[in-house]
Nucleic acid binder design. Structure first.
Lengths: 369, 369
DNA sequence: TTGTAGGCGTTATCAT
DNA sequence: ATGATAACGCCTACAA
């Protein structure tokens, strides 16, 4: 019954005698270990381990007694030690651009929800949309031996394949910016969404429709621009390069871009924005110029962030089920982690939400359709 | 030079013979360990450990050779194993109500920033503003042996003291809802902030000023309400209970509360809102009633979330430096973790940001000031 | 049903 | 400057 390595009780009765001599009182006081409980319960530590795992192999009374003692001592099994031996940390890593971005916040929420339901903890790390930093944090997470990872708005691109091989950790990308065949990802139907928004504007009689993109060089921007152009071309409207301008995905960049658009000789009567943040800035710039939304200029967004419905006027936008996408990513990561090599690229439908920021085109010029 | 416990190389040359017999091929393939590197470098594993830590105790050439081999093998030290022996995981836990809340998002960002600068990883967990769940996640984080924790908008209250004693982990609270003397916390000057907003409205000639709170029973709400009342009383304005109503901290609750306010016989000419989300809903309700902001009703918020400046009209609000508060919390948590028992309650100044959602009171009724 | 022995991958403490 | 050895706290054979 005596432990081979002697007693090492720290704050418990019968505190180790050699403790003061040998252990230089390591930083954090040692919390009770399985052996401490074993000693108090007069059993061996594997028995404690079994009792705490509700193993049927231990006598019910013994188990109950052990559990009581453990509870009294405030015993909490070390996930660190367990992770070392089981080789599974029940931990996942989540890399986002920055958490305060509403898109990332929603995705994060969906992920945390599913993960925590299954007893997984999530490490959060910001990539700041910097490929080098993204690689760095991914490696750091690998060092922490996460069982899997979700990376949003990844910019690592084709470099991922070697990275994945090297790390040998299941990874699911959300809103990947360099979709490839060999990575698992969850994406929104960018092209279809932007096309629907543009078609909606065309249906309202607009012909001079601008597109404010994101100069960050995101795949999602490229795809949305393509959707916009596709709608234009199907309606027989010539694509006017001067109407496709670039913001930065935030109100600030949109204000600048929209202002220029408005100063031109033949300003647009509608703007299709890369995302809601861009729409926010565009609307502000339009009003700053003394024009009204949607009377003079119609505006559409993309994402349907929580504030979209509360703007003045409420924003017509393409809904992206961000939270749900996070859940899907996490659910599929679990499959991957359990060995299923099923999924590949999952494409989520986008839904046009028509509100009041879009209206019939002003009759400034005749139709040529 | 031979390892006592024999070779256990998994994917490397000279793969263990007994491996197929003994190890049931544990879930994840074993990544290279320090011993694998040691074998390849023909040194002992402690030497590898030292080399990788840039210890001056190893021969420079040997160290270089070891590092090269480690890099070639894609060796990544296991933070799990290291954590077990050093008793420090270089990990902190962060508990928020939900990450998609803009306030929490900003705080999280500030925390992640400082933590990651110092090589700490952060575990993110949602409490959903539920005290029971908050306690649960805090305990789970303790099991994961985090070196410290930050809890935002805590609702555990006085139960924290026993919890803290039991867990023996440094904790810093942000925006604590039950401020007590014995916990470390970072808080905004709620009372002063709300008072400033109310004084601003009074200065604009408003006399009938409403307050839309949060029925969640938050300390921050109580304090802001007190600030509102203090301003009123100092201006000699009687507090009208019917003007102090409750929302839920979100646009939805505010719409309901504001609508009722507007239907009353003597509606307010200004509203001081608990936060920006509430202001968002209040503004919408005001417009739904055919009234204008700020011409008919002035509105103030609290927080200065990113969208406040882009609303129509831009929102007058009390700025809470949320990101900075997260940084402060994390900086102080580091102090605590390094043994400094310095800080206690830190109170951060709130700043009134006057924009365009507030204007002089309409002359519906005479002044009685 | 329970105990003994060993190992997970590191770091730390001794020797040498 | 390097190696042997012993933890860290847990789990999992295997033996009793």
């Amino acid at each position: 019954m005596a432990e081979k390595d002697g007693d090492r009780a720290a704050g418990t009765p019968r505190a180790g005698i050699r403790r003061a001599l040998r252990l230089p009182d390591r930083p954090p006081l040692r919390p009770p270990s399985i052996k401490d409980i074993a000693r108090l319960a007069h059993v061996s530590h594997p028995t404690v381990s079994r009792a705490l795992q509700n193993s049927p192999l231990v006598n019910a009374e013994t188990a109950a007694r052990i559990r009581k003692i453990a509870a009294d001592q405030g015993y909490r099994a070390s996930a660190v030690a367990r992770g070392l031996v089981t080789r599974r940390t029940r931990t996942v890593g989540l890399v986002v651009t920055t958490v305060n971005d509403p898109f990332a916040g929603e995705v994060t929420c969906g992920i945390e929800e599913i993960a925590s339901d299954r007893g997984y903890a999530v490490f959060l790390a910001n990539s700041h949309a910097d490929p080098a930093r993204e690689r760095r944090v991914v490696q750091e997470l690998a060092e922490r031996r996460v069982d899997g990872m979700v990376v949003t708005s990844s910019r690592v691109g084709t470099l991922y394949l070697p990275l994945l091989k090297e790390l040998d950790v299941p990874i699911v990308l959300v809103n990947d910016q360099y979709p490839g065949e060999f990575v698992h990802s969850v994406m929104i139907a960018n092209l279809e969404g932007a096309r629907a928004a543009t078609e909606h504007l065309i249906g309202l009689g607009h012909r001079r429709i601008a597109y404010i993109g994101d100069r960050g060089g995101y795949q999602s921007d490229t795809e949305r621009l393509a959707g916009y152009r596709e709608a234009l071309s199907q309606a027989g409207i010539r694509f006017a390069p001067e109407l496709a301008v670039e913001g930065n995905g935030l109100p600030s960049g949109a204000i600048e871009a929209m202002s220029k658009l408005l100063q031109s000789g033949d300003p647009p009567t509608a703007v299709c924005c890369y995302n809601d943040m861009t729409a926010l800035g565009a609307m502000q710039a339009i009003r700053a110029r003394g024009l009204r939304v949607p009377k003079d200029v119609s505006v559409t967004g993309f994402d349907d962030l929580f504030f979209a419905a509360y703007l003045t006027p409420p924003l017509t936008t393409v809904r992206q089920p961000m939270r749900r996408m996070g859940q899907i990513a996490m659910e599929n990561l679990f499959k991957l982690m359990s060995g299923e090599e099923s999924m590949a690229q999952i494409k989520v439908q986008a839904e046009l939400i028509v509100r009041e920021s879009t209206a019939r085109a002003p009759k400034r010029e005749g139709r040529h359709g």
